[in-house]
Design a protein around this nucleic acid. Sequence first.
DNA 1: CTGTTAGCGCGTTCAA
DNA 2: TTGAACGCGCTAACAG
Lengths: 342, 342
Amino acid sequence: MKAKRITIQDIADRSGYSKTAVSFAFNSPSRISKEAVEKILRTAKELDYIPDPMARNFSIGRHMALGFLMPQRIEHSLMNPYMQAVIRSVAGVCQEHGYMLTLIPPLHSSVTEAVKNATVDGLITMGLTIDRSIHGILQRRHLPFVSIDGSGESSISTVSIDEELAAETQMRKVLEKGHRKIAVITLPDDAYAGSERSSDTIISRRKAGYSRALADYSMTLDDLMIASCEATIGDGMRTAEKMLDSFTPTCFVTMSDAAALGVLRLLAKRHKEEISAVGFDGIEDDGFPSYGLATIVQSARKKGAESASLLFSMIEGESGVQHITVPFSFREGRTLKENKWK
Amino acid sequence: MKAKRITIQDIADRSGYSKTAVSFAFNSPSRISKEAVEKILRTAKELDYIPDPMARNFSIGRHMALGFLMPQRIEHSLMNPYMQAVIRSVAGVCQEHGYMLTLIPPLHSSVTEAVKNATVDGLITMGLTIDRSIHGILQRRHLPFVSIDGSGESSISTVSIDEELAAETQMRKVLEKGHRKIAVITLPDDAYAGSERSSDTIISRRKAGYSRALADYSMTLDDLMIASCEATIGDGMRTAEKMLDSFTPTCFVTMSDAAALGVLRLLAKRHKEEISAVGFDGIEDDGFPSYGLATIVQSARKKGAESASLLFSMIEGESGVQHITVPFSFREGRTLKENKWK
DNA sequence: CTGTTAGCGCGTTCAA
DNA sequence: TTGAACGCGCTAACAG
């Protein structure tokens, strides 16, 4: 009762040619005679033949798919608008290459397992520090790999901005406006680290940048209130709410626009619009509603496109490990105001 | 120079057992002796063996991935926040099942080709009318399939709301507020149709709903100004701008929240906040900034989850074709105002 | 119960 | 133009 699928063999039998001839008719028509090609293709059409894509991929050793590794629960990750923008961009490049894009969540809560089982030709991650175990698997699987905003390990390809300088810039702008009572909202630790705790995460690099800026004002990180939150609007609201319970800053400095937007939304709700907020990412450039958010702008489109292009050239063997740095800028907005309270 | 991958055969050789024994050690440890399992696994660890996921999938005839078919250029589709929310939800269910989610753009501009080559165990689409050719491929490939907001063909599984009734409700609310000069922004035709033009699209069903509501006020669709636009904020703005050139409605009725948000943004820019706008989708429920948008609310989460769950049970052979209807509601917001101009 | 042999899945590709 | 081997892990069938 199990309907048998039509295989290349059926075409061969029906048309009187060999499997090989059939394969050639599809992939290298020039290798066999015109009439053979014609008859075979006609037969294939009669039988409604569709090559089994998995068998085909297995033969040629390609998956025709890139993988995007999600560091945490996928529903969470996909709430991050900056990550969405990067994924969009990666997906666009995939489409141009005739590739699919596979979203890969941790498998049985294990990123490691997910990497072992990912049926893709290459992997992109974002903000995930690659620990030894994952790195080992990638090596053994000969899986090309690009890390966006990842750790600084030199053996894997990276695409990022100068995080430390960007963070320093961000904080400096805030300090220049006279702010001293500052609340910092970082990214969640766990999302940006592998199973091994690393000291070289995106967070630590940005904190180093903050410290540099603060030093010029004889301040340190200890003079700020620091909390972490997901790069989502909802979590930004919640985090700001909690912080305001114990502290009233003159400015919120966040490590994501999403969190900053959440902060703004809460401030509006509390009628505390006099408090400033500065974001990080610049997500508004893709038709997102404009809030006039002051923020560090780094092009998600560029990051995604650079990563995917690099990955493809690694897959083609045309490129080895590279470290690409993309530019950033600071956008003055309406949400970073001169501090009048002193 | 091509580094050889470790295969099951290497483990067999090294450990002194057969390939079969090795396979059993991994998949059915109880099938062979404890010591054999132990020795084999130890050997596997020594050699850093990782089973080739493609070969494994090929053997068991599973891809361990669901596919989400994108009707148009992927970067466009992913700008649609409602689609994003659905994808998020689908991805969440996939994760629970230990599956990946593969985004499938048209291949060489052809949805048909994409469906032929998709290496997935099942397919979900959204708002795409499935034409004969696609349907045929799905049949021949025995590929389980669920259509969200799709056409009413009874041979394929669907998950949707009562589009006609929802649209009727939406328009009725507008009419009840006294609006008569109404601008309607539909979805793009092409995104919601396959290669064969179908008369039973989401757009036509909603228009039928509008007509029903209008009839009670002795009006027809011809009394409205109608344009179409992508379900994105950016396109909503552009479309509203264009419409305002030739017509000044008292209310915009849109088929997506994204378009409605674009309209609102443009109205704010033009200082025409007195004009009303009503959306369709209810995307604000996921931490999206609240604009107080009046809209038809249909849960993206529920739609995605229902679709994915149904698809999984179809894959398991536990379920056949089903038509699932999810509820909708109307949310009174601040953007639908009483018409004072008459 | 333990372990092996052989063949399968299906399209690609080498050697003839 | 083709037969046969190949990729790699799974599994029915069989032997000890």
